[in-house]
Write a protein that binds this DNA or RNA. Structure first.
Lengths: 124, 124
DNA sequence: CGGTTGTTGAGAATCGGTTATCAATCGGAC
DNA sequence: GTCCGATTGATAACCGATTCTCAACAACCG
């Protein structure tokens, strides 16, 4: 037996699914905590690690802040990090034209574009 | 009196200037250590903070690794982070077309594009 | 239901990065 | 050369993020 179906993991998966932006472990705890009272941070970290391994969760790394997680399988997109509140939002599209930038001899595997600025709330 | 001209700070400034890629504090220590034997990591951190404050050093943040520093005033460019050796390289150009991606109501101040993959050495 | 065993929660421990401490030292004005 | 205050280096302390520990607990099979 391996991989049980627990309330905590369901709550965590559901919280990430409902969010419209990538969540940090602490944000997941806050969101999933209402679905599974008493939820602990360690459990979030464990579930998140499992999710990434199993492939239904994608890690989003933003400079200068904790790793965020979002459901895997979304179409290619990027992120906007608010300097006011620290939240990370999803932005549609990609400027493309990335490949030509790669130096000769280098192997390009992936890329991450992060926009910095103020979100709607903080810009007001 | 404030801001003395010391061998250590000259060595650090020189090491950053000579590098063709942004260096982490530890990398700066290694490089500048040959110019100023006995150099300590604390001194690197202090000098780097001063450099950023005075405006002749620019901080480059890459997800999942220490902050890098490069001379300020370079023309707009981006970076390539090698998954093999962890080094960060400079890449010329920018795909442009960033502004249209910004969600309505958000204020775009800056952006950072990081390419991931293998550098020439690690790709061989 | 009852046992087996994976899972959980709280807190301690750890980690890499960065900053603070403090006595010894050095820069540079005089 | 002297002197005073800025600077340095070694190391401890700190920090936020993440992982480990371990006893209590709950999921699932029979």
């Amino acid at each position: 037996m391996s991989e049980r179906q627990t309330q905590q993991r369901q709550a965590i998966r559901e919280a990430v699914r409902r969010a419209d932006r990538p969540l940090s472990p602490q944000e997941i705890l806050d969101a999933a905590g209402t679905l599974a009272p008493g939820l602990g941070l360690a459990t979030v970290y464990r579930a998140v690690k499992i999710g990434v391994t199993e492939g239904w969760l994608a890690a989003v790394e933003v400079p200068g802040s904790a790793t965020r997680y979002e459901p895997a399988g979304k179409h290619h997109h990027h992120h906007f990090a608010c300097r006011g509140c620290g939240s990370v939002y999803e932005v549609e599209g990609c400027p493309g034209n990335i490949t030509p930038l790669t130096p000769a001899g280098f192997k390009l595997e992936d890329h991450e574009l992060v926009l910095f600025g103020l979100c709607r709330s903080c810009n007001a």
